[in-house]
């Protein structure tokens, strides 16, 4: 092989391994983070809906403790199914990129009804209507904040579809570049194609171990404990996918190397005969 061809061969292997790693990372983000159904499945498997239901109940009970009201006013305010539906709507809202106001009418009306019944049964009167209004409003906020966390998440929601477009374009571009690269390597009969995949696998292992070593993923706490648990599960799942694909790239690299070796053996045998 001439020197120029050797250099071009080297460049093509270098770029192919880089494109493979980028394509892998983009693909993992697309199939894990940008997969609504996969996310809802993760929420279900980790009993997220039930944990949020329980947390709302505890937070509301804590809030009413000094109010003079008993836990009776919280009865039948919402069900676990209501919580699930609201969380699923919130997830859908994030992926749609359209911010929708949280409809707290159902909870507010039920709470008003429970409070009025409690007041009648216990022969109590409200002297300060404003404080009762803000009491109901804050209880409703407790429900909303456990489902949707903070309103600042709305600015993130608007960016989600734009990011997805960029991701999709990135994946298509990488696929084309990888395909072109492989075709050039194959048709111009360049060698050491297996090394591109082995390089890609070494890089994926490097990314997995170095990045995950620097960031304390297992102890991340954001918003709430159960949200953090889901986030940790997703990040650990991504880490596992990176390892799996690293092994797949290694396997492909070894197979291509074996094929190349066998072709060279065959060529040598032909030459011997001739």
């Amino acid at each position: 092989m001439s020197k120029i061809k050797t250099v071009i061969n080297g460049i093509l292997i270098f770029t192919l391994s880089l494109f493979l790693v980028i394509l892998l990372l983009l693909g993992i983000v697309k199939t894990s983070v940008y997969n609504q159904e996969s996310l809802k499945e993760t929420l279900k498997e980790n009993n997220y809906y039930q944990k949020v239901y329980t947390q709302i109940k505890e937070n509301m009970e804590d809030y009413i403790r000094s109010s003079g009201f008993s836990k009776e006013i919280l009865e039948n305010l919402y069900t676990e199914q209501d919580v699930k539906n609201d969380i699923d709507s919130f997830v859908s809202m994030i992926y749609s990129g359209k911010v929708e106001e949280f409809d707290s009418t159902k909870i507010k009306n039920k709470l008003d009804e429970n409070i009025n019944n409690y007041l009648k049964e216990n022969n109590l009167k409200i002297t300060d209507e404003d404080s009762l209004t803000s009491f109901v409003s804050e209880l409703t906020e407790i429900y909303k904040n456990e489902i949707r966390f903070h309103d600042m998440i709305n600015s993130f929601v608007r960016v989600v579809p734009k990011l997805e477009k960029v991701l999709n374009i990135g994946i298509v571009v990488m696929l084309i570049l990888v395909a072109i690269n492989i075709l050039i390597l194959y048709f111009l009969k360049f060698r050491y194609q297996g090394s591109a995949f082995i390089t890609a696998s070494l890089l994926t292992f490097f990314i997995r171990f170095v990045v995950y070593d620097k960031i304390d993923f297992k102890n991340l706490i954001i918003f709430s404990d159960h949200f953090s648990e889901i986030l940790q599960k997703i990040l650990i799942h991504i880490a596992d996918l990176i390892i799996i694909w690293g092994i797949i790239f290694l396997g492909i690299g070894i197979i291509l190397t074996i094929i190349e070796a066998l072709i060279r053996v065959k060529k040598k045998k032909k030459l011997k005969h001739n």
């Binding site: 050491y192 297996g194 090394s195 082995i198 890089l203 690299g253 190349e260 070796a261 066998l262």
Partner: peptide
């Protein structure tokens, strides 16, 4: 030939990975 092909591929891989 087989060992040489393997060794070359692995050497190239480690070389490029090291550059990255």
């Amino acid at each position: 030939i087989i060992i040489k092909t393997f060794a070359t591929n692995v050497a190239i891989s480690f070389f490029f990975a090291a550059i990255f």
